[in-house]
């Protein structure tokens, strides 16, 4: 016959349940986080805004009917942004913010892992910058 545990032992065990289990989980989850996982290869897109307007670029699913972008970025006038995207096929769109018109570009494009791409944005009247 099993003896009834003392109150002290029961308390200790209960606290161990409350504390140790989450701690184990958190520790392991932290190890599995970005620092622990090997980064997946990405495609780098350098978006250069050569104009004096603000632009928005969007990367959408390649199908035609989705309206929300997988990712998007706004560019201030004369700004460059580096975008790291998972490789794959995207529907890319660019538009001048507040232009209230159709996108300037709307095409499907395959981005390959480990490749770098340059996406210049400009307008008919914008002066070219000498660039970096």
């Amino acid at each position: 016959m099993r003896s009834r545990p003392s109150v002290f032992a029961a308390t200790l065990r209960a606290r161990a349940v409350r504390v140790l289990a989450p701690a184990c989980f958190l520790a392991l989850a932290a190890c599995a986080g970005p620092g622990g996982a090997r980064p997946l290869p990405v495609a780098t897109v350098v978006v250069e805004n050569h104009s004096g307007y603000a632009w928005r670029v969007e990367f959408l699913s390649p199908d035609n009917r989705s309206v929300s972008p997988r990712a998007s970025a706004d560019l201030a006038p004369r700004e460059i942004k580096n975008l790291a995207l998972p490789p794959g096929t995207y529907r890319v769109r660019s538009a001048v913010v507040d232009a209230a018109a159709t996108p300037a570009a709307d095409v499907n494009l395959e981005l390959r892992a480990g490749r770098s791409y340059v996406w210049p944005l400009g307008t008919l009247l914008s002066a070219e910058s000498p660039g970096p």
């Binding site: 289990a21 392991l28 190890c31 599995a32 996982a37 980064p39 990405v42 995207l85």
Partner: peptide
């Protein structure tokens, strides 16, 4: 940052979650 269109698989995260749940369950049903 490590993104991939479509399915994402993060084995470390799942392993950690599973192990944590297992330990918690063991402690709970101790």
């Amino acid at each position: 940052d490590a993104l991939r269109p479509g399915r994402r698989w993060r084995p470390g995260l799942w392993l950690g979650a599973g192990l944590g749940m297992f330990l918690g369950a063991v402690a709970w049903f101790w």
